[in-house]
């Protein structure tokens, strides 16, 4: 087990290093000195000395591989450089913007999970058209453009029905529509996987055995299907993290919330490479950490994974 853990950890670190390299290649290496063109812009009002200082700070004079190692070293020590636009350390921008996004994302994920479970339960226990409805919802949810959904929710709930105030809302009120907007597209793949898994497990011979023992449908669903359908749903949940973050960026833009979304928007608009690079690398770190956690959690749910191939036959 510990060897497996070490192996898995090494693999994760490799992926992280590669993710950093991709981000570096896309953002820093290829456009060459594009970063410095920004600084030479007279509106920024930087003196020649300051520019020279920045050049050194960025290591922009050095050959590419030195820049690479330099940036990598900085990232490892938690030093993400300076935002060109705001002129403050990227680390500070991140510290300010991550908490609201984290709150939005986790609330949305919670709502999405509830929604997915609701759809899955309806797809099994509902009657007639309810079952069909529950099954046709996920593809529909996937196909909805997030930004459009947000706008439509504002239109319906704020403008038409006046249920949620958009002008000077309470902090909790402010979050209702964004959380809903973000939860819908996230719930779809979760519900899809859950429904598909439940269907598959229900066709397994051990379910027939359970029913031959005299178990009712509800007993079978609860005692047999749930545990077996969970592992791959959990894996899916881990994979959805990227979607969640991307969705948060769009949602924050639509609702004008502060957070990573706004920060990303500004960074792209201003070619603020250092900020975007930090966001990309950090989200890769989060993604890898989540999938690692999921991997370590799976053996607890499925004893077949607890023993590595060694003795299994």
């Amino acid at each position: 087990m510990s060897r497996h853990l070490a192996q898995r950890l090494g693999q994760s670190l490799l992926v992280l290093l590669a993710a950093f390299t991709v981000a570096f290649a896309l953002l820093q290496a290829l456009p060459g000195d594009a970063v410095l063109i920004k600084f030479l812009d007279s509106t920024m009002g930087l003196t020649a000395d300051q520019i020279a200082e920045l050049r050194i700070a960025y290591g922009a004079d050095a050959p590419l591989w030195q820049q690479y190692l330099h940036t990598l070293g900085n990232f490892l020590s938690g030093e993400f450089g300076y935002s060109i636009r705001a002129g403050v350390p990227v680390a500070r921008l991140l510290a300010e913007n991550i908490p609201p996004t984290l709150l939005l994302a986790s609330l949305a994920f919670g709502v999405a999970s509830l929604l997915a479970i609701l759809l899955a339960v309806l797809s099994q226990l509902g009657f007639g058209w309810v079952r069909g409805f529950a099954r046709s919802m996920p593809p529909f949810f996937v196909a909805v453009p997030v930004f459009w959904l947000g706008i439509m929710l504002i239109q319906v709930f704020s403008f038409q029905l006046g249920l949620v105030s958009v002008i000077a809302p309470e902090p909790w009120e402010e979050l209702i529509l964004p959380v809903l907007t973000l939860a819908v597209p996230i719930s779809a793949p979760l519900a899809q996987v859950l429904i598909r898994n439940i269907d598959t497990v229900l066709n397994e011979p051990f379910v027939a055995v359970a029913r031959a023992k005299g178990a009712t449908h509800a007993w079978v669903l609860w005692r047999h299907v749930a545990r077996n359908a969970l592992p791959s749903t959990l894996t899916m949940a881990g994979v959805l993290f990227g979607e969640l973050l991307g969705g948060a960026v769009v949602t924050e833009t639509v609702f004008g919330l502060s957070g990573l979304g706004g920060l990303t928007q500004q960074a792209v608009a201003n070619q603020d490479v250092a900020v975007l690079q930090a966001i990309v690398v950090l989200s890769a770190v989060a993604f890898v950490a989540i999938s690692l956690a999921v991997d370590l959690l799976l053996p607890l749910l499925d004893p077949r994974l607890a023993v590595r191939p060694a003795g299994a036959a």
């Binding site: 011979p205 051990f206 031959a212 023992k213 749910l301 077949r304």
Partner: peptide, 26 residues
């Protein structure tokens, strides 16, 4: 179905075909 569930397992039981997939793996 409700009356049958009381019967299954108690009065009639099943030995299934494929033992490898007929037990809940978890």
């Amino acid at each position: 179905e409700k009356r049958l569930t009381a019967l299954r397992g108690a009065r009639i039981s099943l030995i299934p075909q494929d033992p490898t997939t007929s037990l809940n793996p978890v």
